[in-house]
Design a protein around this nucleic acid. Structure first.
Length: 638
RNA sequence: GCCAACGUAGCUCAACGGUAGAGCUCCGGUUUUGUAAACCGGAGGUUAUCGGUUCGAAUCCGAUCGUUGGCUCCA
């Protein structure tokens, strides 16, 4: 006898061996119809799974996140069957779910092309329409290996799997695949799907292994959700910083320098606004600023350890029979500045910032707009301190970092701690001390963090700051890296209270990471609608006709005198056309001026993103705008 | 770097083996306009580059460069 406990606490009694599907039927026909899988004693299983003895059960439907996940996984199988039907030579490797969908890795000599997607989808449609069941067959590990008959990829999957029971699922028209499950009861429950893209992917993500074809699909509960997802993709495309960067004339790229951004005047307005703000905050937090050379002798990079650990990403140059490297990081230069004089414990902590221009030769396939470039400006700083100052310094950096993020409207951040990588310098003891210092600071601030084992820089452990943008995407921006190695390599010392020379602790840190990348993130976060203090065009004045051009120019001059970034549209277009065109430039405000405004010394303000307008005295508008800029207000409403 | 796709005017796209076009932008003119696009005209392209096939190539083939989407890597 099985005693089955439902989520509401009630008990259903049934014979042993009753299936989850039958339990669902007992609860109600509606639920039985909607059922996709079940959770028995906390484990996800097929609806066909038998239940014995005491058990708790939850019927999973498409409404549950787990239900959607199962639908997607089953969809991957359906796509695999479709592909195997079209390409009988295709060897299946691995087909998991991902955010918004699934993929299947396939070993097939003939490339699958985007033009094939329609055929694949049609075939998938046929399989779904036939609505054949997914049937689970369990066997031992040895039986599974025997059944696979030496098939390379699936045998490897068995060898990597845990547990002694392996399972195969048969579905559709005689299709069979090794899979842990669970699956939807039959293909008809697959929901709405679309084959999205195909890309190369190394087997096991290992570049020395064969490159497989990874076919991506998206799948949803129904057609409506699929369409909404596709619309969301379209919207995200419109936010693409590369598209908006061109539209707003912020920056460009040229074949003359792949991965090297050209910042235009509008882009530099955003850049310099950020720099001004950044300098102000750093001054308040007790930082000084330096600037170190971009090209430095190769020997320096041997000494710093970069030659041994970072050479592949560095640019080199040679003149006067001497080898030089273009700096990929600012720290060695910072060390040379430190060395120019004697230091005392009294001046510690010594906080030295540098907006350093670095070059890194990134692989051609990874460069991407402003997000991944080969030349970028880091908002770097190096803090030299004594070991007992580490914790307080790290706390200070955390506070400074949060203050800066909040000014840009980022509210959700999280922190990750990365520990010793395989490729590292320095002793295990040094690594442990440094890692503990970071942990203690985080504990002191009561900050939750995630640990990434083995992800640290080669010279020390680090904590990384991640922010979440308006599309809920996570970006790594800031980093704090403890470094006990660099001071040793450069023989940096300070004189302590007892008149002995000791090695200082060096803390590397960046808040925004890369200016280029951060600006790209801001553009996508705001969809190009920059907050007033960052907007390249804060206001555009639109005279109704030439008759008020003089008034428009006068207003422009007055607003400029207040420090506002203003321009005038003096073309002979009608006002409707001026507004429509100006929209594309995304100014915070449009100021319409005609005879009425010129007589009352006012402007008719159109706020970006709003239909209705508001008339204000020129001085009134200027005062409000100036205050909003000073306060870095994100809200444009007057 | 690897796999695949794509490179046509400043931008967005047509033309898909037979004389390279449109809209927007830009320039000149008409119009003097009241809240999301008035009208007329003009300029702008060795179709990424180089080579091949063909009577004929933007179109087919190859190489190179670049871009896009992934993989690996990363700020």
């Amino acid at each position: 006898m099985a005693r089955i406990k439902l989520p509401d606490g009630s008990i259903i009694e049934a014979d042993d061996g009753v299936t989850a599907k039958q339990v669902a039927e007992k609860i109600g026909p509606g639920l039985a119809k909607a059922a996709i899988a079940a959770k028995i004693n906390g484990n996800l299983v097929d609806l066909s799974a038998p239940i014995n003895g005491d058990a708790s059960i939850q019927i999973i439907t498409a409404k549950d996140a787990e239900g959607l996940e199962i639908m997607r996984h089953s969809c991957a199988h359906i796509m695999a069957e479709a592909i195997c039907g079209l390409w009988p030579n295709a060897k299946l490797v691995y087909g998991p779910t991902v955010d918004d969908g699934f993929y299947y890795d396939i070993d097939l000599e003939e490339p699958i092309r985007p033009g094939d997607f329609e055929r694949i989808e049609e075939k998938m449609g046929e399989i779904v329409k036939a609505d054949k069941p997914f049937i689970r067959k369990e066997m031992t590990r040895a039986e599974a290996i025997a059944k696979l008959g030496g098939e390379k990829y699936k045998t490897d999957n068995v060898n990597r799997a845990t547990g002694d029971i392996m399972s195969f699922y048969s579905s559709g028209d005689g299709f069979e695949d090794l899979c842990r499950g669970p699956h939807i009861p039959s293909a008809g429950k697959a929901g709405a799907f679309k084959v999205m893209s195909v890309a190369g992917a190394y087997w096991h993500g290992d570049p020395t292994q064969k490159m497989l074809q990874r076919v991506y699909g998206t799948s949803w509960r129904n057609r409506k959700e699929l369409d909404e997802y596709l619309t969301r993709l379209e919207e995200a495309k419109k936010r693409d910083h590369r598209v908006i960067g061109r539209q707003l004339d912020l920056f460009s790229f040229n074949d003359a320098g792949p991965g090297f951004a050209f910042m235009h005047p509008n882009g530099m307005i955003i850049w310099n606004s950020i720099v001004d703000f950044w300098r102000g905050v750093h001054k308040r937090f007790g930082y000084e600023e330096i600037k170190t050379p971009i090209i430095l002798n190769k020997e320096l990079w041997h000494r710093s350890g970069h030659w041994d650990h970072y050479k592949e990403n560095m640019y080199f140059t040679r003149f006067d029979d001497t080898d030089y490297a273009i700096k990929p990081m600012n720290c060695p230069g910072g060390c040379l500045v430190y060395q120019t004089r004697k230091h005392s414990y009294r001046e510690f902590p010594l906080r030295v910032a540098e907006l350093g221009l670095v070059h890194r030769h990134e692989a051609s396939g990874v460069i991407h707009g402003l997000f991944r470039v080969r030349q970028f400006t880091q908002d770097d700083a190096h803090i030299f301190c004594t070991p007992d100052q580490i914790e307080a310094e790290i706390i200070g950096v955390i506070e400074l970092t949060f203050e800066i993020y909040r000014a840009f409207g980022f509210k959700d951040f999280h922190i990750e701690l990365s520990t010793k990588p395989e490729n590292h310098i320095g002793s295990d003891e040094i690594w442990e001390t440094a890692t503990n210092a970071l942990i203690n600071a985080l504990k002191h601030k009561n900050i939750d963090y995630k640990v990434n084992e083995g992800d640290g820089a080669f010279y020390g452990p680090k904590i990384d700051f991640h922010i979440e943008d308006s599309l809920k995407r996570s970006w790594q921006l800031g980093t704090i890296q403890l470094d006990f190695s660099m001071p040793q390599r450069f023989e940096l010392v300070y004189t302590d209270k007892d008149n002995t020379e000791k090695a200082p602790v060096m803390i590397h840190r960046a808040v925004l990471g890369s200016f280029e990348r951060f600006i790209g993130i801001l553009i996508e976060h705001y969809a190009g609608d920059m907050p007033l203090w960052l907007a390249p065009q804060q206001a555009v004045i639109l005279p109704i006709s030439e008759k008020t051009n003089d008034y428009a120019r006068a207003v422009e001059a007055r607003l400029k005198a207040q420090g506002l970034r203003v321009s005038c549209d003096l073309t002979d277009e009608k006002i409707g056309a001026k507004i429509a065109r100006t929209h594309g430039d995304k100014p915070a405000y449009m100021l319409v001026v005609g005879p009425k405004e010129s007589q009352s010394d006012s402007v008719n303000v159109r706020i970006r993103g709003q239909e209705q307008t508001k008339t204000l005295k020129v001085d009134e508008f200027a005062a409000i705008a100036v205050k909003k800029i000073a306060d870095k207000q994100l809200e444009l409403a007057l």
